[in-house]
């Protein structure tokens, strides 16, 4: 996945059975963001692989004050890249 400066990883082991998965997102390179991220803590959240889109979560993160509106695309893309990898791995398992 392209280095967006925003890192997204699994926050739990993925056994491929549940449609929701816990992810953790944090800023590795603040210089790549237009806005100034609030703090560099890791943000943990659950994501529904079937019902939700990465852009939904990115927008909610902006609305919750974690990121500036101008960074919603970078955050969405970072989540999308990780979710794509999870779904690819799951398809390989099946």
């Amino acid at each position: 996945a392209e280095d967006t400066g925003v890192r997204v990883e699994l926050a739990e082991e993925d056994h491929g059975r549940k449609s929701t998965i816990a992810l953790r997102l944090w800023v590795e390179d603040p210089k790549k963001l237009k806005g100034k991220p609030k703090d560099n803590g890791a943000i943990e959240f659950t994501f529904d692989l079937e019902k939700e889109t990465p852009e939904d979560v990115a927008q909610e993160m902006v609305e919750s004050g974690f990121f500036h509106e101008s960074d919603v695309k970078i955050v969405g893309k970072s989540i999308r890249d990780r979710v794509a990898l999870i779904q690819w791995r799951r398809s390989r398992i099946r």
């Binding site: 803590g41 943000i43 943990e44 959240f45 979560v57 909610e60 993160m61 609305e63």
Partner: peptide, 27 residues
């Protein structure tokens, strides 16, 4: 303060926890 929780109006919970130092300075 870290380990804070923010619940978005749509109901999603965001839990903020410290990033392990080692992960912050990854190349």
């Amino acid at each position: 303060s870290l380990n804070a929780q923010v619940v978005h109006s749509a109901g999603r919970r965001f839990i903020v926890s410290p990033v392990p130092e080692s992960r912050l300075r990854e190349p």
